[in-house]
Nucleic acid binder design. Sequence first.
DNA 1: TATACTGTGTATATAGATATAAACAGTATA
DNA 2: TATACTGTTTATATCTATATACACAGTATA
Lengths: 129, 129
Amino acid sequence: MELPIKISQQSREPIYHQIENQIKALIASGQLQTGSPLPSIRALSKDLEVSVITTRRAYQDLEYQGFIQTLQGKGTFVADINPALKQEMKHDSVSQALSQAIDTAVQHNYSKKQIKELFQSLLDSRGDL
Amino acid sequence: MELPIKISQQSREPIYHQIENQIKALIASGQLQTGSPLPSIRALSKDLEVSVITTRRAYQDLEYQGFIQTLQGKGTFVADINPALKQEMKHDSVSQALSQAIDTAVQHNYSKKQIKELFQSLLDSRGDL
DNA sequence: TATACTGTGTATATAGATATAAACAGTATA
DNA sequence: TATACTGTTTATATCTATATACACAGTATA
């Protein structure tokens, strides 16, 4: 079972962190339901072409945070998460991402109008929306 | 002379990289003009409460990329950069930041409408714009 | 029961990021 | 000329991230 996640090697964010964030997004948005199995750490490491230690680290963090649970010999499954928490996670993550992008634009001396226009044009040119 | 840059310790992006990006933004947007002096690596390290090695790394990378030049004993100065290049840098950096934020929203299954609304509300609640 | 998978623990190694410290060389000013 | 600044070099150290490898223990299936 493949997860729709992608790793950017040029990003300065650690790989395991990228994996974590993307799995969280899938869970928070309901694309991964409670109880559904995740790929094994070995399978995921092959998919993403990273080492098992890296995928394992991501899963460990997610488990520590309560998003997944792993059973030795069986695998790893999405945990049961309060829907209100999911909503909050969604909102927080997306808000933070957008805010940071606005920060970057402001740092570059973009006006409100310019930011809005560029954003609109980028949003409109997305083929997946 | 203090630079209006801030370091986020929780960000997973290396500190020197954060410094680089923010100085680039200042140069690209004209907030730092050709020839103007940057704070010494020691002064900057004190301002930002990071080590000299870290600020030096940022300055070295910026120099390698042609944005600044340093003279031993004198200090570090903004280089002369083609205005077209500045424009391109601005546009690329801001576009990339906004695109990545949209990616995050999409990962969280946000619709175009939701993204737009959240963005608008975040933009409107900015006190600095 | 053997095989193929699962997670867990451990080891070794390398690269990157960052801290602190000291010394050297160059510049500027009182 | 001494002092205070500037960048440069070097050293030591620690932590983090990631790679590869191996072995152990648990589960599932043919």
